[in-house]
Design a protein around this nucleic acid. Structure first.
Lengths: 238, 238
DNA sequence: TTGCCTATTGGGCGGGCGACCAATAGCATG
DNA sequence: CATGCTATTGGTCGCCCGCCCAATAGGCAA
């Protein structure tokens, strides 16, 4: 215990490459969500993990790769939260309603910000652009599967599940576009645009999804109140 | 003509502050459109105008102000191109149809990119954020006026012109979100989403705006073929 | 316990950025 | 033509960035 004052010489902690790598990606993903993708710098990530910048460089010789990886992790985690892959989580209608509840609330703003961020940065960073395209395909695919399942079960009705899926996503993107600038409140009709589009394109009676959503929202709120909020994807401990 | 080889010592050209300032803003706006807002740096703008970086600094002590100004100029010019302020340019239906032709074509991609760029950068730059909000208000206002005029003339039918306007803009934003990443073609239904939304929300028969648009598009193409493309806002010489 | 492999450190290099300032030279004015 | 105002220059400063590399020390295996 020679020196316990300021962090003059932290004891080195040696981890397995795979653990360390995962740790770095997670830290970068957390930074991406809270501060933005351009804040993923060698020094910033290193500081977060309390290691030296060179170490980050060692695992990611090119930072752009880390940025892309971080985005993929964050977006992927959110996708799993919004549209769980397993089919046991309720009827298509229930799951779609849940999706809209989560993707329309103010809690989705961080994700909107991330998408705007990534789509813009894609202009300059090819590796990230590929990742963004990949994630877009994943989101689209997951939602399209849900739509098709609903059609198969007779809950939804659409001639072109693919086109319907894209239309829903376009509206969601449009609603999220203002996450960094919006100030005032929007008319109810606008807030409901995503749900309305889905109901219209899926041949559902107006209000169907909203009603399911309201019920699910109540459940979700109750669960959170009882067990603490653990819906967030990456652990942003302090 | 003593020295015409490398630019060893360019003759100074002295301009009036207002001229120079405008020149700087225009150059910055051009850079914003072609390369992105983060490429508006003292050195880059100076190079474009063939002056020294210090001069830019002199007119804009804080670069952020120049960035905001440049965005405002570019976005404002585009707005005037899409939705001319004067009411003599045809019936509301015609003008709205023209708007969609211009705002949906591939030529609009640069503008989409600019909006994505600005909305993202707004996260970090307050001055820019204010400008973006202001431009959003202008676009919204201009479109809303058109909608109201159409309602007054009995061409459109909507209970809430404001909400209708926002819905149209949300769809346009959603369609433009992928300007940096999109690769393949989209289903026709998706491409037509903006027009469809407008027709639905304005109580127009399906296809009304498209038909007007097709006619206008033909005219526009003819005119361009005859007189050269001069629809672009900022002169990007060379 | 000893030794080795390698994860980790510490430091340095070049580059681009915004900001600042004293010196210079256009150009209108008299 | 001479003079003065000021638009413009040229250079510097500090900051943060990505990238690279030789030296160091953690911790598992022998």
């Amino acid at each position: 215990m020679a020196d316990m004052s300021s962090g003059t010489q932290r004891k080195r902690i040696r981890k397995s490459p795979s653990d360390r790598r995962a740790e770095i990606v997670d830290a970068a993903a957390a930074i991406a969500l809270t501060e933005g993708l351009e804040c993923i710098t060698l020094r910033r990530v290193a500081e977060q993990l309390d290691v030296r910048p060179g170490l980050i460089s060692h695992y990611f010789p090119a930072v752009e790769d880390l940025v892309a990886e971080a985005f993929g992790t964050a977006a992927g985690a959110e996708l799993n939260a919004l549209l769980p892959a397993d089919r046991a989580a309720g009827t298509p209608t229930d799951r779609l309603a849940r999706f809209f509840v989560l993707a329309t609330g103010a809690a989705y703003d961080d994700i909107s910000r991330l998408w705007i961020n990534a789509r813009h940065l894609s202009r300059y960073r090819p590796v990230l652009r590929d990742r963004v395209s990949h994630q877009e395909a994943l989101w689209r695919g997951r939602l399209e599967d849900l739509v098709r399942e609903g059609v198969d079960r007779g809950e939804f009705r659409t001639a072109d599940p693919y086109a319907t899926t894209i239309q829903i996503l376009v509206v969601i993107d449009g609603l999220g576009a203002h996450a960094n600038t919006e100030t005032g409140a929007r008319p109810e009709v606008v807030t409901r645009m995503a749900v309305s589009t889905a109901e219209r394109e899926l041949g559902l009676e107006g209000g169907t999804l909203s009603r399911h959503g309201a019920a699910l929202d109540a459940d979700r709120t109750d669960a959170e109140a009882a067990s603490g909020t653990d819906t967030s994807p990456a652990g942003s401990g302090t």
